[in-house]
Simulated scan of single mutants.
Amino acid sequence: MDAWQSIDDLIVQRRILPATQAIREAERYSLHRAIDVFAERYEHLRRTRPDDFTVSGDEYRRGVYT
């Protein structure tokens, strides 16, 4: 399994912090850049794999502060 497949799985599973950390490690990004990339990837996955998400976008982000 490649890094991005694992990251995508974390995103779909609503494991936001581990996904952001995995992005940082895979791409050697700063925290700020990793957060931006996470947001971009999340939107991409919402468009291309909507049935994989079990909660709404608002619920997905509830309790996460950046």
Rank of each mutant, 00 (worst) to 15 (best):
Y60E: 01
R61H: 08
A26V: 03
S30M: 04
R46Q: 11
D8R: 11
E59P: 00
P50I: 02
I35D: 13
G63Q: 06
F53K: 04
H32G: 09
A26S: 14
Q13R: 12
L17S: 12
A26Q: 05
E25C: 00
V64L: 13
S30A: 06
E40Y: 05
V12Y: 05
D52P: 00
P50L: 02
D58L: 11
P18M: 03
I7W: 06
D2S: 15
R49Y: 03
V37T: 15
L10E: 07
L45K: 06
Q21F: 00
Q13P: 00
A39D: 14
R47T: 03
V55T: 13
G57L: 00
R62E: 12
A39K: 11
R61M: 14
I7H: 10
R62K: 15
T48Y: 04
R46W: 11
D51L: 07
Y65G: 00
V64H: 14
V12M: 01
R33Q: 07
H32D: 10
R41A: 05
R47H: 12
D51H: 09
D2G: 12
H44K: 12
L45N: 12
R28C: 09
V12F: 03
R33T: 11
L45G: 10
L31K: 09
T54V: 12
P18L: 09
I7K: 04
I23K: 01
H32Q: 13
G57M: 03
H44M: 11
R15G: 02
I11Y: 10
D52Y: 02
H32S: 11
L31Y: 07
I16M: 05
D8T: 10
W4K: 14
A34T: 10
R24T: 06
A34D: 07
S56M: 02
V55E: 06
V37R: 10
Q5A: 14
S30N: 01
V12N: 03
P50W: 06
I11T: 03
E27F: 10
R14I: 02
S56T: 14
R28S: 10
R14M: 06
Y29M: 15
I35S: 11
V64R: 09
P18D: 02
G57T: 04
I35V: 15
T48I: 01
V37I: 15
L31M: 11
D52E: 15
E43M: 08
H32N: 09
Y42F: 15
S6W: 02
F38M: 05
I11C: 08
V12T: 09
G57D: 15
E59C: 00
R41H: 06
T48L: 03
D9T: 13
G63A: 07
M1W: 05
R46N: 05
D58V: 04
A39L: 13
Y42H: 10
T48A: 04
R47L: 11
T48N: 06
Q5S: 15
S30C: 00
E27D: 02
F38P: 02
L10W: 07
P50K: 07
T54P: 01
